Simulated scan of single mutants.
Amino acid sequence: MNEVTIAIIAYGAISAAVIAGFFSFLNLISSKENAVSDSRQKWINEFRAEISRLTAAIHELVRIEEHSKTLSEKEYIEVARETYKDARESLTNIQLRLNPEHVERRPQSMEAKLWNAISKSRTDFANGDLSATVVDCDKIREEAAPLLKKEWERVKRGELTFRVVKVTALVLLIVGIAFVVLGADQLIQIP
């Protein structure tokens, strides 16, 4: 074998190894970022379900409260027990999904606005203002929507690491192709 053939074989082997390593790295990053996006999607679905469950429980509690005058205390407790449990559980799940720093220190954040709407419904219910409590459910859904949309947009866009790696991969691919083309051109010119 002459020097040109050996150089071409070596060049091809090195190029193949670099390309394989590069795509292995991309696959690793992509897999990790897909797992994060799947977790975010699960969070969105569960959060949406908790908002639905909470507002349904509030509506049911209002309905029970409207008919409470016809019930004994024991009957009221029995009828309302499960609905109160559902409301408390949903409330806790929602609260645990919200960023407490945003709720407490950023009054204009989506999380703070949602929590304020939930708190208002609790206050209105406790004060016996049932019609306001029903209206509050609309406000809860209204305040949850932008938060859900923001998370959905984040899932569609992909995680920051994924976006950076994607752009880097494209640049490296273009540079790699240029390198292969220029390197092959140089190999062809070897006497």
Rank of each mutant, 00 (worst) to 15 (best):
E153K: 15
V79E: 11
A145I: 07
W43V: 07
E50T: 11
F125M: 08
R122C: 11
V167S: 13
A117M: 10
I29K: 07
I174R: 05
R81S: 09
T161I: 09
F125S: 04
K150T: 14
F47C: 02
S68W: 01
D136K: 05
V165T: 10
I174H: 03
A10Q: 03
E65F: 09
V164D: 01
L172I: 05
L148Q: 10
E153G: 13
I19L: 08
K69M: 10
I140Q: 04
K156V: 15
I64F: 14
M110E: 14
M110P: 05
N34K: 05
I8V: 06
D136C: 05
S119C: 01
K85W: 08
E89S: 07
E33K: 00
A57F: 00
D136P: 10
Q108I: 05
K149G: 14
S109A: 06
L28S: 11
P146H: 06
V18E: 12
V167R: 09
P107V: 15
R81C: 04
L173G: 15
A112N: 08
K166W: 14
P107A: 07
A56P: 05
R122Y: 14
S30C: 09
I29C: 02
I188T: 09
S121E: 13
I8F: 14
G128A: 04
E151T: 13
Y76K: 11
K32Y: 06
K42C: 02
H102V: 00
A35H: 04
V4R: 10
V18G: 12
L71Q: 04
S68H: 03
H67N: 11
V165R: 00
A112R: 02
I44K: 01
W152Q: 13
A57P: 08
E82R: 11
I44T: 03
R105P: 10
I29T: 13
L96E: 15
E151K: 15
L28I: 09
N27G: 12
E33H: 00
A112D: 00
R105A: 12
E111F: 11
H67C: 13
